[in-house]
């Protein structure tokens, strides 16, 4: 038991990256996209949290983006929010098992069960988290805010290609989100837009590097949190204005 009781120093174990957001916004699809694009350069594992079934784990396995044994499902007893915040033990053991079985892993992605706007990951479970909204859920959702929208390390506004079909002004929604987040990063994503997929991958590479070098703390983003600019190389898309770095 003792080797399970104290986590390794942050820079030596995998980056634990949470993906949260309401049901149907594309969390599984985002994870599949990350795996498809980064599995050749990073050693990845995935934990899914389903509510009724292991549907998400099945989806990811069938997508063929990772070997099936690197994708594991945790049953959350109809309490997806509890499993990532109040009682993280099941997920923590699943993450630790995966890290041990496939050592050394670079990144473990933990997908929360689709829940509501208030559910975010405990810093005891993940090092960083992505919160996913989609344009089809309504253009005003980003403006409404909430802990995930305001404080996740990255906010993704997904399915931007659907904007014209659901009468949502994507530019307006992204601007609302940026306001709600005080400038913390917002990514407008569509799996049909390769440039946006590359930005997502660049962010994952960046947060992994920050973690690897011990520069990332699992805390809420500060007022001058990392953000990205509209132009430049992938590696330069994200930076901070912290003078000490």
């Amino acid at each position: 038991m003792s080797n399970e009781q104290s986590p390794a120093p942050a820079q030596r174990r995998a980056l634990r990256l949470g993906v949260a957001g309401p049901v149907g916004t594309g969390k599984s699809s985002l994870i599949a996209t990350v795996c498809r694009n980064l599995a050749d350069e990073l050693s990845l594992g995935v934990i899914t949290n389903d509510i009724y079934t292991d549907e998400d784990a099945r989806f990811l396995r069938s997508a063929g983006v990772l070997p099936g044994e690197r994708i594991r499902a945790v049953e959350t007893g109809a309490c997806p929010h509890t499993a990532i915040r109040d009682d993280i033990t099941m997920n923590l053991l699943a993450v630790e098992d995966l890290e041990r079985d496939f050592a050394p892993l670079d990144v473990v992605l933990v997908e929360s069960g689709g829940d509501n706007l208030t559910a975010t990951f405990s810093p005891g479970l993940v090092d960083a988290q992505i919160f996913v909204l989609d344009v089809a859920g309504g253009g005003d959702v980003a403006r409404k805010g909430g802990p995930g929208i305001a404080r996740a390390d990255l906010l993704v506004i997904n399915k931007t290609d659907l904007g014209p079909h659901v009468d949502v002004d994507v530019g307006r929604m992204v601007a609302d989100a940026a306001t709600a987040r005080n400038g913390a990063p917002v990514l407008a994503l569509s799996r049909k837009d390769e440039d946006s997929v590359e930005k997502l991958c660049a962010w994952v590479r960046w947060i992994n590097r920050e973690h690897r070098h011990g520069r990332h703390l699992p805390t809420d983003p500060g007022p001058m949190a990392p953000h990205f600019h509209a132009s430049g190389e992938a590696d330069e898309l994200f930076h901070t204005h912290d003078e000490t770095r």
Binding site: M1, S2, T89, L93
Partner: peptide
């Protein structure tokens, strides 16, 4: 799961005897 939680909340070397 219980031992994982207790080990973090109230570490005690005697828990080694219990098995994983």
């Amino acid at each position: 799961q219980l031992l994982r939680a207790v080990g973090a909340i109230r570490p005690d070397p005697r828990l080694e005897h219990v098995g994983a």
